[in-house]
């Protein structure tokens, strides 16, 4: 019976913590309700779709293929990205290029985003700086799996 009384003090202490949170947060909520701007907010929640979050500059988002000055992809089909990709979601087919400095260009470049794990290894591996993950696009939910297979046009666009 005495043991329970010992718990009782701790129980009351616990409730004081939650009551303090409630009262403090409610105070700021009410101030904000009446349009008074405060430095602190009542909640740490961000209202995401309405108030998008500023992504960090190094955040890995949807891939894009970079272009040369004449609009062709910078990719030279060295296959490093496809090799390093742990999800094996990159598929490349090469075509011949008349310029002897380049020799190869991709005729197909497919990234299956439904498999991609956004590790960024392809970006690290690329010797030509042809692929980057800096579009800032993170809302990648689609209704069909086929919509997540990005081809060359989509990645260049």
């Amino acid at each position: 019976m005495l043991k329970h009384l010992g718990f009782f003090i701790e129980i009351v202490k616990g409730s004081i913590i939650t009551i303090r949170h409630f009262v403090v947060n409610m105070f700021y909520h009410i101030l904000n309700l009446f349009g008074i701007k405060t430095k602190r907010r009542g909640a740490v929640t961000r209202q995401y779709p309405e108030a998008p979050i500023q992504l960090a500059s190094r955040h890995r988002s949807l891939h894009r293929l970079l272009q040369r000055d004449d609009g062709k992809p910078r990719c030279v089909v060295c296959m490093l990205c496809a090799t390093v990709c742990p999800s094996e979601c990159i598929y490349i087919e090469a075509a011949e290029e008349s310029d002897p400095e380049i020799q190869k260009v991709p005729s197909t470049f497919i990234i299956d985003l439904s498999r991609c794990c956004f590790c960024g290894f392809c970006v690290e591996a690329c010797p030509e700086d042809a692929i980057r993950m800096d579009t800032g696009e993170v809302e990648l939910a689609r209704y069909g799996r086929g919509d997540l297979v990005y081809n060359l046009e989509k990645l260049l666009g």
Binding site: T18, H21, F22, N25, M26, A43, V44, T45
Partner: peptide, 10 residues
């Protein structure tokens, strides 16, 4: 709502 306010949520 109350649980949210207690836990710094909305």
């Amino acid at each position: 709502k109350e649980s949210a306010v207690m836990q710094d949520r909305i």
